[in-house]
Design a protein around this nucleic acid. Structure first.
Lengths: 198, 198
DNA sequence: CGGCATTATTGACGATTCGTCAATAGCCAT
DNA sequence: ATGGCTATTGACGAATCGTCAATAATGCCG
């Protein structure tokens, strides 16, 4: 349906091809909307091949999601040399840029448009906790209080869902969006500082 | 397994009983972790009865989720007589209180611990958009800009996920949490005011 | 070039689960 | 009591999941 013949590929190449297909497919159709037979047909391979590479239906979905979250984590790495304010802005800007480019799959993922259970949420949470750690590290905070962690976590949720809503609404003028995200961090910073003193 | 005999109940009473069971069951086991046969067995009724009341497996799950989101919307209605600041605080406080009491089901829902696809997210979004409308109405803003809506939406996501993280971390000292949520609204308010002028 | 070993790929199969529906059984009115 | 209404049941057909022995494409080596 998609490929030409059942050409024999190397394991790695086939795997990458199937994951790329998975992103497109799940972004459009979601999880469990189609049977594995139908998915395999659309991908141009046999059902057995999908099971061979990913174990089961969920495995295919999970690996696809992981390929996205890993990419987000890699792209939002803040530059090491710059001072906090600049590095922070770069991080936010890169995140918004990524969502803008990959809005189909990522916005759907954040907004729960795709099937998201405990296991999927663990992958999304890895993005959030990684971002938290980077911020805390840059600020030199080694042992944040419970409230501090909740504050940062809440802010990360704000930019995630704000971005998702933004792309859904057309995705115009990212600069003002970024400015708002940064200003929204101010109350968080205040919590961090007051908690740090005590 | 749960009930005594297959006593014949009124339609409404049976429905309420099954929904109450659904909350407990899905909070603990999630969606699609068990077959309908197993769920019916645990509920102490036949599988056919579940299908009779809710149409299909997803129907049972969706109705259960809806019973929760409807309750959240009802409980977070801000008092009409008081000025904005006070009404706003009451609303936030009620929300935190609800999450604290029903943390098992609601935190799981927000954090994606339960299966959440497009349809489920529509129900969760109804909570968010209702909160947005209430805030805008109280502030007398009739036609908010796109950025204004995104800002409020992001803030609502912040308190939702912040609460979920808070209960997961033990759920102590809600007053400081509430104070943070209210202070986190300040940047949103600035956006609303500046957008309103233009 | 040709035959062989390796392994990527397939499709039919058994097991499980979804959702249906005719049959059953409890409750109320007369 | 008894008869009608309807809440409730469980066996059935259809569809899907995941497995596995068979197949075929590729590369290697003589």
């Amino acid at each position: 349906m998609m490929d030409l013949g059942p050409r024999r590929m190397t394991t790695e190449a086939r795997r990458e091809q199937l994951l790329a297909f998975g992103r497109r497919h799940f972004a459009e159709h979601g999880y469990e909307a189609m049977s594995m037979d139908a998915i395999a047909d659309r991908a141009g391979v046999s059902k057995g091949l999908l099971y061979h590479y990913f174990g089961n239906q969920r495995g295919f979905y999970m690996e696809t999601v992981r390929s996205v979250t890993d990419e987000v984590i890699a792209i939002t790495e803040p530059p090491a040399e710059q001072p906090f304010d600049q590095a922070f802005r770069v991080m936010v800007t890169c995140f918004v840029g990524y969502v803008q480019e990959h809005s189909a799959i990522y916005a759907a993922l954040v907004r729960g448009g795709l099937g998201s259970d405990t296991e999927v949420n663990e992958l999304l949470d890895r993005v959030r906790t990684t971002t938290m750690s980077r911020i805390l590290e840059r600020l030199g905070i080694r042992r944040p209080s419970a409230l501090s962690q909740i504050a940062i976590y809440g802010w990360v949720s704000l930019i995630e869902n704000g971005c998702a809503e933004w792309t859904a609404a057309g995705g115009a003028s990212p600069s003002r969006l970024i400015d708002f995200f940064i200003s929204a961090f101010e109350p968080v910073l205040e919590v961090l500082q007051s908690e740090q003193r005590s």
